[in-house]
């Protein structure tokens, strides 16, 4: 069954895209990640113009982060003050990102920048996650032999971040830290949301844990809270400035995604945390390798037709 996408202006197979939404939703439910970093490259591989893929994916993330944030709101595991500060940075970043997006598209380098950003971020995050989870699994194996119980490695109490000025108190997170790194992390995630079509959880969550030392029980809820509003803003800004949000495509992905996430969450409960992390790290590195290969392999077609400057 084919459906004509009104904004992307091409017909797509409904079941293929529902299936893609479900598959990525399954992984995101299983690992507790947004899945934008998987979905956007998948959309681009399957022929959706990159500009439409990125903007539409932001719209889909609104749906998944909203339903996730609702759960955390009920559990009271959101630090609103921290979330709002991250959001302030995020809105600024998203605004900059949408403008950058437009400029890069006119310069004809948008696809390159999207690929480079993906390769570098996925490569770094994937490698770190894999390193950490393998290390943890080894320790656990050793401990099992010697009969000791190991706790996950807790990061040290203080780092250079805690020396910065403009300190604020965040009650829910029991933190007293500078506003500067919070705004900066928010802004970085906002820029990435606009350019890469991701929520940015895969960057924000480690940054909050390792740089800001936010307690793990409020990290996910607070990052979902920020992601939800940043992707809302991004969707509206992309729709207004670049006309690249395809509501039909977004809806297909949302429906597939929310269903897939349910099954993923159940499957995820059967695996251990470090196993999940190692598996996710492998997927992240796989996507990274695929995109990296495209950058260096000799393309079969050297030419592309793009929009004229100023359009």
């Amino acid at each position: 069954m084919y459906l004509y996408l009104p904004i992307a202006e091409l017909p797509v197979n409904v079941f293929l895209f529902l299936g893609m939404g479900a598959a990525v939703g399954f992984l995101s439910g299983m690992f507790g990640v947004g899945g934008g970093f998987l979905m956007t490259p998948l959309l681009i591989f399957s022929g959706i113009p990159p500009a439409v893929a990125v903007a539409t994916e932001a719209n889909q993330i609104v749906a998944s982060s909203f339903s996730g944030a609702l759960v955390h709101f009920k559990r009271k595991s959101i630090d609103f003050k921290l979330g709002l500060l991250l959001l302030a940075g995020g809105i600024f970043g998203s605004f900059v990102g949408v403008l950058l997006f437009r400029l890069l598209r006119q310069l004809g380098q948008l696809d390159l920048i999207i690929s480079l950003l993906y390769v570098s971020f996925l490569g770094i995050i994937g490698a770190l996650m894999l390193y950490e989870s393998i290390g943890f699994m080894r320790k656990a194996a050793k401990a099992a032999q010697s009969g000791k119980v190991v706790a996950a490695k807790m990061p040290g109490q203080h780092n250079w971040i805690h020396g910065l000025p403009f300190k604020m108190r965040f009650k829910r997170s029991k933190l007293y830290i500078s506003a500067i790194p919070v705004l900066a992390i928010g802004a970085l995630v906002g820029i990435l949301a606009a350019i890469m079509g991701v929520g940015g959880g895969f960057i924000m969550v480690p940054a909050m844990i390792y740089l800001l030392r936010v307690p793990t029980n409020v990290v996910i809820g607070t990052s979902l809270f920020q992601i939800m509003f940043v992707t809302m803003f991004t969707t509206i800004a992309q729709a207004g400035a670049n006309f690249t949000v395809d509501v039909m495509l977004a809806f297909l992905l949302m429906v597939g995604g929310v269903v897939g996430a349910q099954f993923g969450a159940r499957a995820g409960q059967k695996l251990k945390g470090e196993q999940l992390r190692a598996l996710l790290a492998l997927i992240v590195l796989g996507v990274c390798a695929r995109l990296g290969y495209e950058l260096v392999a000799t393309p079969t077609e050297l030419f592309t037709i793009g929009l004229a400057a100023g359009h």
Binding site: V62, A63, F66, I236, A241, V247, A250, M254
Partner: peptide
């Protein structure tokens, strides 16, 4: 949809966001 997205881009964006929220809430 096409006309709406071209002529009233920002309002169209808000509708897209609203649709996403309803889908997320329903799920």
């Amino acid at each position: 949809m096409y006309d709406f997205s071209r002529n009233y881009g920002y309002i169209y964006g808000i509708v897209c966001v609203f649709l996403a929220m309803v889908t997320g809430w329903l799920s």
